[in-house]
């Protein structure tokens, strides 16, 4: 029987803080992304070379996607949502490398990401509508909807977390079972499926975060 997917391996202790394996993987991904972006954007040219073209296409592609969903200027949302998407793609796909496991397949990383989305929804909502206007938006369309609106804030954050965790973790779990049953070559189609699932889940997490933030920011001041 494979190890429980709900617990994660503890690597070492940093004072009272327990450092587990997904945290170290996340640090490695963060370092790789930061150093990679720094290297590419160190010398930006108007006649760009290969890496800069790829990065520009990625950034403009994400911006167009956000604009397509929100129907408004994507630039205030681009840093958060773009980082979220790129991190999720790398994190979901890094289990393809031997010896690493996806940090999103453990409960704490999706929880942290969902909390970031939860907080930024309120941040963008208050910033674009003002505190009073944003609080008043919970009583729409009628005051009787207030408890349901507040409840939906919590449940949709929870479902965001469970969706990412469940998809990535179940993929790894099935892979572990298949490897335990038949080791040679049989797991390869499942791994290919896992790559697809990882990309789709990264996309869906980002799109849902975009939709939530866009709904909180409101469509009152479009364009």
């Amino acid at each position: 029987m494979p190890a429980s997917p709900l617990t994660s391996t503890v690597l070492f202790h940093l004072g009272p803080v327990v450092i587990s394996r997904p945290v170290v993987t996340t640090w490695a991904i963060m370092a790789a992304l930061a150093i990679g972006c720094r290297l590419v954007t160190r010398r930006l040219e108007s006649r760009p070379g290969g890496p800069q073209v790829v990065l520009e296409a990625l950034v403009t592609g994400i911006a167009q996607q956000i604009e397509g969903v929100l129907q408004r200027d994507p630039r205030p949302f681009l840093p958060l949502l773009g980082t979220l998407f790129i991190y999720l793609v790398v994190a979901n796909l890094c289990s393809v490398l031997p010896g690493t496991e996806a940090p999103t397949g453990k409960l704490e990383t999706p929880l942290a990401l969902a909390l970031i989305v939860f907080c930024s929804v309120h941040y963008f909502g208050i910033r674009s509508r003002g505190l009073r206007g944003y609080l008043a938006s919970f009583a729409e369309p009628k005051l009787i909807m207030l408890p349901l609106n507040v409840l939906s804030e919590v449940t949709r954050t929870f479902s965001l977390m469970v969706r990412l965790f469940g998809n990535v973790m179940s993929g790894e779990f099935i892979l572990a079972l298949v490897i335990a049953l038949a080791g040679l070559l049989v797991p390869i189609p499942f791994m290919a499926l896992e790559v697809l699932v990882g990309l789709v889940q990264a996309y869906i997490f980002s799109v849902l975060a975009t939709v939530f933030i866009g709904a909180a920011a409101g469509s009152t001041e479009t364009q």
Binding site: S4, R163, G166, F173, V207
Partner: peptide
């Protein structure tokens, strides 16, 4: 469609998480 499918799929994932909770926790 992709977003909607993910929403629907979440129901099955909830069941899977409940099953894993029953088995492991």
């Amino acid at each position: 469609l992709f977003v909607g499918l993910a929403m629907i799929e979440t129901m099955a994932i909830y069941c899977l998480v409940i099953a894993l909770l029953l088995l492991f926790a």
